[in-house]
């Protein structure tokens, strides 16, 4: 069995340094990503402070079941990915490829459920920017703000999930094609960092848009 080892780039001393650099780079990138979301979270927090009542009603208006199912799907995906990493480190490539692909699949299912939810909202006449029938019946501006931030945050998150699914698919394919071994596990670990980050963001969105519905 030949296990491919990642190429050492000319400017690194050795492979562990190269792996360290890649990991560090990913962490820094994620710090940046976290602040991307924090901008939106700040918006949400500020508006929620302005309009606590309607935000609560808005959360209650969302579908708790779909949101919660989605949370579990994402978490399961993350679990798969952790297992995939373990499998690769244990040199069980086939299993690892399978688990990575399963993670990507979980992401896909998540996206489908999310899209269904959006479709429900649009059918009710809820569009970003306070457009649609729903806002004629509920003319308080806070409703528009709530749903605009809903679309903004979940949309931005969904973009990240989509990118993540793409990366996972590509990684699975790459692991399969290149017959990678444990030495390349750090690359999968980096993909994992990104994917777990995307999950964690959802773990914030879940309460903000599905759970915080009862008066304090």
């Amino acid at each position: 069995m030949n296990l491919a080892v990642p190429k050492l780039q000319h400017h690194f001393e050795d492979l562990p340094k190269q792996a360290h650099a890649a990991r560090l780079g990913m962490w820094l990138f994620l710090a940046s990503e976290a602040l991307f979301f924090s901008g939106l979270f700040t918006l949400y927090a500020a508006y929620r402070a302005h309009y606590p009542e309607i935000f609560r009603e808005g959360v209650a208006h969302n579908d708790l079941v779909l949101g919660t199912v989605n949370t579990f799907i994402l978490l399961t995906g993350s679990l798969f990915l952790s297992l995939a990493l373990w499998a690769l480190r244990a040199a069980r490539r086939a299993l690892s490829v399978l688990l990575t692909a399963a993670t990507g699949l979980a992401g896909l299912v998540y996206l489908i459920i999310k899209a269904t939810e959006w479709a429900h909202h649009m059918a009710e006449g809820i569009f970003p920017g306070g457009r649609g029938r729903f806002f004629v019946e509920n003319p308080e501006p806070a409703w528009a703000i709530f749903y605009t931030s809903y679309y903004g945050l979940t949309g931005f998150h969904a973009i990240h999930v989509t990118v993540g699914v793409g990366i996972l698919a590509w990684t699975a394919w790459w692991m399969h094609r290149e017959r990678v071994g444990p030495a390349a596990a750090y690359k999968l670990a980096i993909v994992g960092l990104y994917w777990h980050f995307v999950d964690i963001v959802w773990l914030f969105l879940w309460p903000l848009f599905y759970l915080l519905r009862n008066p304090a």
Partner: peptide, 14 residues
């Protein structure tokens, strides 16, 4: 109060 091409139009009365 909408630019053209928006998704869904508010009725003029409102």
């Amino acid at each position: 109060p909408l630019p053209p091409g928006s998704l869904d139009r508010v009725d003029p009365a409102r």
